[in-house]
């Protein structure tokens, strides 16, 4: 059976087979699940549809979350798309990621990728690429397959759970997956896909998971906006020829090690960081009283 435990192995398999990373990931899933390529692609296409629906819903909604902590910022960002320093694509990425994350916080339908807390990053990156009209739905499905392969490796060798590795494990992994997907969409080589993952994760190492009141809202919603743009930058840097000095699998191992060293107070327990600021504590008391 075809299998890979590291990004390096994934790259090697793609190069040996003279194919793309998504081909390897798809082949593995066929063998593992005993499903047809067609049915797997169909399910991924459905996920892409749900991603787009969540973006559209969030970009038009001023709904507040159940707690009242978040909601309505995607609309503001969308209105600002033509202005600002970062440019249209970056603003669109941030708006889309915040949109999905707001939909999640208000009990709407999302695709966890890899988690609900980081559900805006990959869809936003794909949305930006799709809006540029240089790719079709089928290309996006391929890019999502690649992203899932990267996520699998991170889960195997580090973690995708904030409770285990802090936010670097959730938003860090999501940014790595999104960067990989963008590079693949742009026609990058398997090595470049791996490089984009390294750049994206490397610059989110050590990120704490310290949400106010333990809810997936503050700082999670806005952070999804930031990390979508971060993923786009990692892809652009890679395509411009910038190489990560530390190879991708070593970056993932560093993430694993940092996760283990990180105190429990910063791993989704709401016992440290932003959660225990004066304002954070006051808000938590208000929500749960």
């Amino acid at each position: 059976m075809i299998n890979f435990n590291t990004v390096a192995e994934l790259i090697e398999l793609a190069n040996k087979g003279n194919c793309r990373i998504h081909d390897i990931v798809l082949q593995r899933e066929v063998e593992l699940s005993r499903r047809s390529e067609e049915s797997i692609r169909e399910e991924m296409a459905h996920s892409w549809k749900v991603m787009q629906e969540s973006i559209k819903k969030g970009l038009d909604s001023r709904d507040k979350s159940i707690s009242g902590l978040t909601g309505g910022n995607a609309v503001k960002l969308k209105a600002f798309i033509k202005q600002g320093y970062t440019g249209e694509s970056a603003m669109m990425g941030a708006a889309a990621a915040v949109a999905v994350s707001e939909v999640n916080a208000s009990m709407g339908r999302v695709v966890a990728c890899p988690t609900a807390g980081s559900c805006g990053i990959l869809p936003a990156a794909m949305y930006v690429a799709f809006q540029k009209q240089e790719c079709n739905d089928n290309d996006i499905v391929n890019a999502l397959l690649t992203a899932s392969g990267i996520g699998m490796v991170v889960e195997k060798n580090a973690s995708i759970a904030g409770a285990y590795g802090g936010c670097q494990a959730e938003c860090g992994t999501a940014a790595g997956m999104a960067a990989a997907a963008l590079v693949e969409l742009a026609g990058g080589t398997p090595e470049q896909v791996g490089n984009a993952v390294a750049l994206a994760i490397k610059n989110l190492l050590g990120l704490a998971c310290d949400p106010v009141a333990g809810l997936v809202e503050v700082p999670c919603v806005k952070r999804n906006g930031f990390e979508a743009v971060h993923a786009m930058l990692a892809a652009d840097m890679t395509l411009a020829g910038v190489k990560s000095v530390i190879p991708v699998d070593e970056v993932i191992e560093a993430m694993n090690q940092i996760g283990k060293m990180m105190p429990t107070a910063l791993k989704e327990t709401a016992e440290g960081g932003l959660a225990v600021t004066e304002t954070g504590l006051r808000l938590a008391k208000k929500i749960f009283s």
Partner: peptide
Amino acid sequence: MRGMFDIVGPVMIGPSSSHT
């Protein structure tokens, strides 16, 4: 290692995979 739809997925109602 788990399947791809454990990573890109599941499709779910938020906000939390464990709590919702």
